[in-house]
Design a binder for these strands. Sequence first.
DNA 1: TGGGTTTGATAAACCGGTATAGCTCCTGCA
DNA 2: TGCAGGAGCTATACCGGTTTATCAAACCCA
Lengths: 338, 338
Amino acid sequence: MARPTIADIATQAGVSKGAVSFALNGRPGVSDATRERILKIAEQMSWRPHSAARALGASRVDSVGMVIARPARTLGVEPFFAHLLSGVQSGLSAESISLQLLIVEDTAAEIEVYRRWASEHRVDGVILVDLTVKDPRVDELKALELPAVVIGGRGGKGALASVWADDRDAMLSIVEYLAALGHRRIAHVAGTPIFQHTQRRIRALRDAAPRLGLVDAPSLTTDFSDAEGAAITRKLLSQSERPTAIVYDSDVMAVAGLGVAMEMGVSVPGDLSIVAFDDSILTQLMHPALTALSRDTFEFGRQAAEVLLETIADPGAVINRRTADPVLTVRESTAPPT
Amino acid sequence: MARPTIADIATQAGVSKGAVSFALNGRPGVSDATRERILKIAEQMSWRPHSAARALGASRVDSVGMVIARPARTLGVEPFFAHLLSGVQSGLSAESISLQLLIVEDTAAEIEVYRRWASEHRVDGVILVDLTVKDPRVDELKALELPAVVIGGRGGKGALASVWADDRDAMLSIVEYLAALGHRRIAHVAGTPIFQHTQRRIRALRDAAPRLGLVDAPSLTTDFSDAEGAAITRKLLSQSERPTAIVYDSDVMAVAGLGVAMEMGVSVPGDLSIVAFDDSILTQLMHPALTALSRDTFEFGRQAAEVLLETIADPGAVINRRTADPVLTVRESTAPPT
DNA sequence: TGGGTTTGATAAACCGGTATAGCTCCTGCA
DNA sequence: TGCAGGAGCTATACCGGTTTATCAAACCCA
């Protein structure tokens, strides 16, 4: 017998298919003795549910999806997604739910994927990343009635469930530390302004600047690429009044910035302090090693999975879970200004 | 009507369910006129097949799997997997087949996943990476009768289908270049010896050494981590007769090695040439930028997907496809020895 | 003109589960 | 003693497709 079905188990146990289904799903309808017997037989036949059959009957596929809309070439440098993925999987594996991952070029393609997934019943829910200002995906998912959880960024006016960390506090912990070291000219090389988290970081810096006595605290936006990170850095360091500290919104840009500083003969941390808004092996490989904000990305993913499963179970409740605050890991790239 | 089924289409078109199925799958059994009519109705009802229903009926789930067995923390630094994934997806999307991705800790867990996938009919086939010497996964997949394709490394004695690049030629192109520059002391910081590609690279270097007149060409194995890469480099550069060039099996180790050289006051490329056996943004961000071997990882993935689909269609044929050879991208980290 | 083959379509079985109506037997309580 | 009610189980419909057996009508050629 190749792959046993519940019918085989039923025959073997001398009961009906229904009884076997009850027993295997731990729901009432059979006596403990019978349940025990059925489970034992299923075990020794090494039976496993046929996912498609179960999906068809129970209209639930035990699978969730995640789409990453970024050009592949900018992806993968950052361990962010790898860690996030592992975390998500760890949160799902307990319920033995599988994950569909898709990398696409842009948001339009991403929405197309959601439509397809919904109409083909391929996933029970999805996890969203990189929430933008007025994100079109939110309405789309609402319309599709596809359970979803947003990672990093509250879903807006009670729209979608979310798992988020406080970007504002994170930015504050960085600039307060720099200010305490004595820095008054702090520049911020930000990411794309369409991302909500970019906006929150920019606002946090602007709001804190007066209180901390910063004379100049510009936020300059980029596309997150190393090229733009380097270009902006070059511009900043060419000014007559150059900043004494730069905060980068990603580890890749911070590394690119460090390269520019070295090339221009600006010593780090002597003449310039550098902080990366994301930690990774990259920041540790550098000389000097970069001070960076560490987030527990794995845990982030795990919680997202958890919240998504709860949302699937009860689409009514909109959960907004705040995760642990990121912490600043101080390394060699920060020092008092000279 | 929420989600139309073929029954709805059948009613609308005034034909039977069977006729609709034939029409939608482009198989004989209906006249062209009827087919046309059915397709139009399906289109305007925006019908899409229910994946589970189709899987149950046709015993094929239109989904393939890929398991990566590496600790999450070492993952993601290398763009390798991100590019590979994109490539695989691009190869699959044409047939609108989805990809299940799983990151696990070790091979035992990976095999467990294959067993589950097979018994639950969750995938039609799988893609294998990081083939080891005497890889236990090969036999396991054979036993499970799960179609598979191996990436990077011939599947062995006609075992599994594969997509591979010639590691031997690649290594030769590196050392021949270094030898031509005048290097005679070349060290090789290799990966884990259990990987087949590591073995092939080591062997290639050993075989070429006499012909190129290398006086010393040791291959030192590591676990691919930046820590070991740095440690081995430190050891190599502390010898009285230090190598004038080092070939690293990964970009991360090369970067770590560069860091050690700088820390020890060994100038690159003046006193030491460095080559990475893998290209990425990392190698480009460095100062000096690293000479690296570039492989078309995206294309690699695309071809793997293609071969897998062919293998699923005809499990008898064992395809071994060789992809384009990697090319050496020369940057600033290599020069003639002084 | 008639028998055999092809064409176009239908009805029904089937895939492997889940959900539900209904049946039997046992227990408890008035 | 009689009856309500629940436990334990069976039989069966159902999910949305695919596939097969069957059949009527059209076609072909002698």
